[in-house]
Amino acid sequence: MKTIIIAEVGVNHNGCLKNAFQLIKEAKSCGADFVKFQIFKSENLVDENAEKAPYQKRNMSEESDSQFEMLKKLELSFEDFVEIKQECEKNKVKFMASAFDLESLNFLLNLNCDYVKIPSGEINNVPYLREFRNCNSKIILSTGMSTIDDIEFALEILTSAGIDKKSISLLHCTSNYPCDLEEINMNSMVTIREKFGVDVGYSDHSSDNAVSSAAVAMGASIIEKHFTLDNELEGPDHKASLNTKDFKKFVRSIRKIEKILGSSTKKPTDSEKETKKFVEKKIFASKQILKGEKFSNLNMTTKRSKSGINSRDWDLVCSKEAIKDFQVGDLIEIE
């Protein structure tokens, strides 16, 4: 099964529609399946006195600690997102977004996207989750900063609002930008899949491509990775994102893992079938066998040969008597 790869632009357009369009083109050239954005109204999202999160302070050089001021600079209008979705369609890459307030969520739900993503920070937001009663899209629920109980709570709210559980995918992630390898705990993605019986994926905030490759090998059907035009740009997420060159390598590594994984069916490949002809053992006489003598371990052996009775039929041959005389090294024949 092909892994869905999401290029998470988020706010890496820095509030500029031109940058958003360029990111769409670049993401498409990298092989991304979806380009994802974050939709919000700053005044609905944070209190004007709210401080930046620690990772936002760490990743930005501007002196102001105001989260509101930061977000206001990164905000795009609803009209902008209509154009962004059209630009995705023009570039033949799919649009996806997450909304961070109810007004933005209702706008997003009316865009009729294939998928809508619920951010990790909204996993316990009851009125937000209940708004999905109007959702006709598939849902991706991000589970950063959460426990199994938190996930179960969110799923109960969504399903009680009329959402089919089968239309929900759960994304494991670590909400640190970038996160250390010791924080990833990929085995919990498997726990989530086994516990809730839905498709799972991984939202990768690490700085190592091996992490998402491991996630795919462990059953992730969706991979999300932050994407930027330039890691040196000012903004909260650029440093934890991949630029165009690195995102291309990232996509190639995931597609390589898919080839390695293959299918769940155990069968010989075409090349193995050819090799098998030369290494399979057939049954030979190890000493002289006279007509009417019973075949046994005492008068037969196996050797590689392109013709003859396959060694897997050894017990069948041992139940038979020789139909003629055999000399040492002769291929055994039976009726």
Rank of each mutant, 00 (worst) to 15 (best):
I140G: 07
M60T: 15
L242E: 02
T244V: 14
E8L: 06
E234C: 08
V216N: 06
T191A: 14
K73Y: 03
C173N: 12
F295I: 07
I123Y: 10
A53W: 12
D80G: 04
G15T: 08
E272W: 11
D101P: 06
K266Y: 15
E43M: 01
S188H: 13
V9N: 03
G235K: 05
D199R: 08
Q22W: 00
I257Q: 07
S175I: 03
D47V: 03
K239I: 06
S296N: 10
D33A: 01
D208T: 01
Q86D: 13
A99Y: 08
S296V: 10
P119E: 04
I24L: 12
S203E: 09
D230Y: 03
E182P: 00
E335I: 10
I334K: 10
N134W: 06
K324C: 13
K248Q: 12
G121T: 09
E62Q: 13
K281H: 10
Y202H: 13
F227T: 13
F81M: 10
L102V: 07
F227V: 12
F132V: 01
N310S: 12
S311R: 04
M1Q: 13
G235T: 07
K94M: 05
K320T: 06
E75S: 03
F284M: 03
L298E: 15
D199P: 05
I163V: 15
L45S: 07
A322Y: 05
K256Y: 09
K36Y: 03
N124K: 11
D330Y: 07
L108Q: 04
E87H: 13
K117A: 09
K276W: 08
S213W: 05
K195H: 10
E79K: 12
S146A: 15
E79W: 00
K73L: 06
S271I: 14
T3Q: 07
K225I: 07
N124C: 14
I309T: 02
L45A: 06
K303T: 04
